[in-house]
Amino acid sequence: MWADLVFLGQIAVKSSVAVALAALGELVAERSGVLNLGVEGMMLMGALAGFAAALTTGDPWLGLGAAALVGAALAGLHAFFAVALRANQVLAGLALTILGAGLSSFLGRSLAGQSGPRFRPLHLPWLSDIPVAGEIFFTQSAPAYLLYGLAPLLWYWLFRTGSGLRVRACGQGAASADAAGVNVARTRALCTVLGGALAGLGGAYLSLSYTPGWATGMTGGQGWIAVAMVVFAAWRPLGAVAGAMLFGLFQALQFWFQATGQELVPAWLLRMLPYLLTIAVLAVVQGSPSLRRRAGAPADLGRPFAREG
């Protein structure tokens, strides 16, 4: 029983890495005031680019790098429309998701079904030997460890440094940030691009570690889960990772029930839970004025900024 639970935890963490990376990326973009609904498309392109580069070079790390670049490039496209042209961010983001899905399906046709290099579980000295926690968190592949480092780093950046303060200011009050001398457009563009790179990494984790290989539409909606998790976490990095892990747990439970044949909770309910929880969190936060004021929801999210005159 105990071993089963540890195994369940392991699978849960394993299933959460892609969502967590993409959610962190979306969080940075949204904190700066840019809503990017193109996460799903950027993840798909990242998954394809990562797999293709790893297949060509034989090195999964180069695949990871390529995925980040492709994700960043697509996000750059979003930044061009959403920040430079001040287009409607919802429409631009949706277009990006459609573009990513279509383009990856088209370009990946010859790669589907091939097998290539992958990240294997990496045993870390000390950490992997800790009972229970070590077995759950430190028997993962390299991108998971990247995530463990990245989440606190992003938190520190956003909440403990001057440039992080300026990023949050662009999302919370673009006019105030501008009056304080922050270059709102540049900050937003850079954050969007950084967010895209992380979404690309999330996608590559899927094609290089979680379900190695390329399959059309292989993200299966994880990009949308990532967008939901940002809201669920009230725009806090560590909360986003925790939310992603909760999502991973639901995934793991589905596998578990399938494997054991005893379906304690129906699979459709588990698949629904991340969205239901997000709605519940939104309802609770919106219902309480003091929570609402303290929640991180960027006041200027999705609102293009232009100085008059």
């Binding site: 001057g162 303060l165 300026r166 200011a169 009050g173 105030s176 009056a179 004021r293 006041a299």
Partner: peptide
């Protein structure tokens, strides 16, 4: 300039707002 409509970010603390204008 102190604008008629304040250039403050409501969800941030006083110190954060000041630091935004005067880093450090």
């Amino acid at each position: 300039m102190v604008h008629q409509r304040f250039m403050l970010i409501e969800s941030m603390s006083v110190a954060e707002n000041v630091r935004l204008a005067a880093p450090g």
